[in-house]
Design a protein around this nucleic acid. Structure first.
Lengths: 392, 392
DNA sequence: CTGAAAGCGCTAACAG
DNA sequence: CTGTTAGCGCTTTCAG
């Protein structure tokens, strides 16, 4: 150690062994006498030695870093997803490297393919980001490194995939609304699609719609364009809430017409000017005498927006309408009303994803051939909170 | 390029130049003829060359990676902070490496000091995490690399620091409540401290308490133990809400006694059994005839909890009590009621922090001596939303 | 079980 | 403006 940080050579010298033995001892490789190992560890401790990872990575070609690509940090869903993935990665002695794409497909492709880190540094990737789906040549972009997709929803997976319980969860959510007495249920979060088209969907939103609509039809309740309201983010969740509120007020009045905003809202000036969202809910809808009394939202963010939008028109949750979301965002336990939701098990997701990654990493390091892509679906819990409470 | 990825040597060969010239051309160093540079870039493009960062980092000792250490990902405050920091870091051509400590001081110290990445890989660190304050030997742990603390609140900064507008923001928040007609204001988020002790606080919570209490006293309103309720996270925010609710009900009844929960809550069974939080609010408080009509929370998370806790007792916001938070969490715009808050400018924070880091990095690369620690305080906007609306 | 040699791919320093 | 030399610190390989 001339001056700067101690190197492996310094540790070896201090321990009276060769650099190679020191390296093996430090890394816990088998085939080092216990007494030797202790000597080396003591020397390293004494010198406050820290391995130089850049050198290690350069030589070995492995980094133990897992690349996690998500759309953003600041949303109830992603912040929780990232927390679970990062925690599990760390628990396994690997290092999580989290990158956000901000929903830009270009940024996502860059993160995966052209970013120099991705090219050579990462041992594997876990991806839930717009633009990185199976329509693009992921394997090529990724140079064939281990890759786990989250919620890719392919029928026959081309990559290791961990899916959400989209259809079952959505079905359970709608059934819950029905059990709570709802008979006219709106679906927020997806564009309408007829049932026959839903038979062959391979995406998250479609599967949730399939589950939700199936539950409606099984119960003899209506499923058509008039009950679906699209909403891809919270703002549109609010718009969907407005649309549903107006539909309710029109239905209550027994006729089509202008519904006055009955909100107590003094600061939010948008209530009177929002446009209709979704494919329907506006104007004189045919044979819908009964007002909406339940809403299934395909994510919690949209659910918060819907509750917000309903409130703008003075419609109370769960008093007038019950609302259930999907995801299990942490904040749903603290809002007013607290939000009923399909809480997906993100810790389990993280475990599955890391199992898949580490399996492939090990396969490769042993020169074994790649095994076929696997798929797992995580569990969920229906969390019943105030937003679907029966009594009022 | 024998077989695997193309190396710089391959690019140089393809372009008919030396590796060094290729390196300089690729990195945009001055002193390369334009025609040569173009040849090199074309060759790199053609070969789909990607620099090997491990080799680059090993040789140069620089990584362009900024280490961002925070307590967690999944909270309204941190998810937004991380998003701002990561976005700004990327915008400057640097790479953000975000790590969570989950509030463990040991994990935080490990992240900063013993994690091998920290030892040699990162060009600088931006820190907002429990356990990494100026009580510990940060400079030594960090081996003297550039370091920016967020909200360290030292009177004379020992490290580059970006502070929140703690005192001014809290003062503005309480003044806002007063302007909205509140005359009996509770403070949630900090343990009570007498005014004379607050003169010399050097921490975020103390400064917010100083600002809030100052505003109360300036307006001739009471500031004593009976108006403070501690709350360090959302759960305790809820407890504080319960305590405030009970105080209100007692005060309304004009005497001490059991306050019945008047909640419409059918699922949350805790209302009747929670313990009192904070230092007061329970039992027969002396001369407090007037019920609380306003609450200042020193963070939004606590504010959500307080609103939640008040609702458990049937107390409405803003109808019965107005509530304002601090931070400007994204979700405050979508809750019901929407949350008034002191919205701090996290994008500005990110800019300041990165200015400070890059300045030091450049200083070092030029062998200049370190300049004294600097400090900046970010701006805020008082966002007035439903939770402090005057009309009902 | 331990050691010696070689080099991963790049870039700082200097020579041409 | 371009090329040559040398070596960052580690680990793979293979010999002892």
């Amino acid at each position: 150690m001339t001056d700067g940080k101690p190197t492996l050579r310094d540790v070896a010298a201090a321990a009276g062994v060769s650099p190679m033995t020191a390296s093996n001892a430090l890394r816990g490789k088998p085939g080092v006498k216990e007494s030797t190992r202790l000597k080396v560890l003591a020397a390293a401790e004494r010198l406050d030695y820290r391995i130089n990872l850049t050198a290690s990575m350069l030589k070995s070609g492995r980094s133990n870093i897992i690349h996690i690509i998500v759309n953003e940090f600041d949303s109830p869903f992603y912040s929780k997803l990232v927390q679970s993935l990062a925690t599990e990665t760390t628990a396994r002695g690997l290092t999580p490297f989290v990158e956000q794409t901000r929903y830009s497909p270009d940024a996502a492709k860059h993160a995966l393919a052209t970013n120099p880190f991705s090219g050579q540094l990462f041992d594997g990737e876990i991806i839930h980001a717009a633009g990185l789906n199976t329509d693009v040549p992921l394997a090529a972009m990724n140079h064939g490194r281990p890759l786990v997709l989250i919620d890719a929803c392919e029928d026959t997976p081309s990559f290791d995939t961990v899916n959400f319980p989209n259809e079952e969860g959505a079905r359970a959510a709608v059934q819950h609304l029905i059990e709570r007495g709802c008979r006219h249920i709106a679906i927020v979060g997806t564009d309408y699609a007829p049932r026959n088209e839903l038979a062959r969907v391979e995406d998250s939103a479609g599967l949730r719609l399939r589950g939700a609509s199936g539950a409606l039809l099984d119960a003899g309740l209506p499923y058509d364009e008039s009950v679906t309201f699209s909403a891809y983010n919270s703002t549109r969740g609010t718009e969907a809430g407005h649309a549903i509120a107006r539909a309710i007020l029109e239905q209550r009045a027994g006729r089509a017409g202008s519904a006055a905003a009955g909100s107590a809202d003094g600061t939010n000036g948008t209530a009177g000017t929002v446009e209709m969202a979704g494919t329907s809910g506006s104007g004189p809808t045919a044979a819908t005498a009964m007002a909406f009394d339940g809403v299934f939202c395909s994510n919690d963010y949209a659910a918060f927006g819907v509750i917000r939008g309903l409130a703008d028109y003075g419609i109370a949750v769960p008093g007038d309408v019950k609302v259930i979301g999907f995801d299990g965002a942490t904040s749903g336990a603290y809002t007013t009303p607290t939000l009923s939701t399909i809480q997906v098990d993100l810790d389990q997701l993280a475990q599955f994803a890391l199992d898949m990654i580490t399996r492939r990493v090990e396969q490769r390091s042993q020169g074994a051939a790649d095994t076929p892509a696997t798929r797992a679906t995580i569990g969920y819990t229906l969390v019943s909170r105030e937003s679907t409470t029966a009594e009022r």
